[in-house]
Simulated scan of single mutants.
Amino acid sequence: MRKLGIYLVITLGAILLAPFVIDQLFFFFFLGKIPFTNISLPAILMVIFWAIIVPLAIILRKSLSALFWEFISIAGEIAQRRINRKIRYFTPNQKSELILLSIYLLSNMEKSEPYDEIESQKLAPSMT
């Protein structure tokens, strides 16, 4: 679904920009004029350009698409890590709270040895 959305945005952008740049692209592809300048490339440079670009585009067509989507997934992973880091810093560490609570409870407990003699209860004078 995301791919379709990106393709639609690119197509819509190309349609909206076409009236402004189509003549510049036409002059570049067929006459060797650099877009938006008055500089024209010599014919040998245009032959070299087409001799390199066409086979390169054919060879890299699939790999460029895969590379583009790999960059998109890496950007998504980085964004997800950032979100996870914010959540991790926002929530308190409950393990440390439990440790502190147990230390507090242990320190407040009365210390008694298991072999201490139990004090005899004071009995009423009539019972002695």
Rank of each mutant, 00 (worst) to 15 (best):
M1W: 04
M1G: 09
R2L: 15
K3Y: 06
K3C: 05
L4W: 01
I6N: 02
Y7N: 13
Y7V: 09
I10V: 08
T11E: 00
T11S: 08
L12C: 06
L12S: 13
A14P: 01
A14M: 14
A14E: 04
I15D: 02
L16S: 04
L17M: 08
A18C: 09
F20G: 00
V21N: 07
Q24F: 03
L25E: 09
L25D: 04
F27L: 06
F28S: 01
F29D: 12
L31P: 03
P35F: 08
N38W: 01
I39A: 11
L41C: 02
A43H: 02
I44M: 09
I44F: 10
I44N: 12
L45Q: 07
M46E: 01
M46S: 01
I48T: 08
I52N: 02
I53F: 12
I53P: 00
L56I: 10
L56A: 15
I58A: 07
I59Q: 08
I59R: 03
I59K: 04
L60A: 15
R61F: 15
S63Q: 12
L64S: 08
S65Q: 07
S65H: 03
S65D: 10
A66D: 13
W69E: 06
E70S: 04
E70D: 05
S73I: 09
S73E: 15
I74M: 06
I74R: 02
A75P: 00
A75M: 05
I78C: 08
A79G: 06
I83R: 06
I83P: 05
I83L: 13
R85Q: 13
K86T: 10
K86P: 00
R88H: 10
R88E: 12
Y89N: 10
T91H: 08
P92F: 11
Q94N: 15
Q94I: 13
K95V: 14
K95N: 10
S96G: 02
S96F: 02
I99M: 10
L100M: 03
S102A: 12
S102P: 00
I103Q: 15
I103M: 15
Y104I: 13
L105N: 12
L105R: 05
S107D: 11
S107P: 02
S112A: 11
P114Y: 11
Y115P: 00
Y115L: 11
Y115D: 05
D116E: 13
E117S: 13
E119C: 04
S120N: 12
Q121N: 14
L123N: 09
L123E: 14
L123S: 11
P125H: 09
M127T: 10
T128M: 14
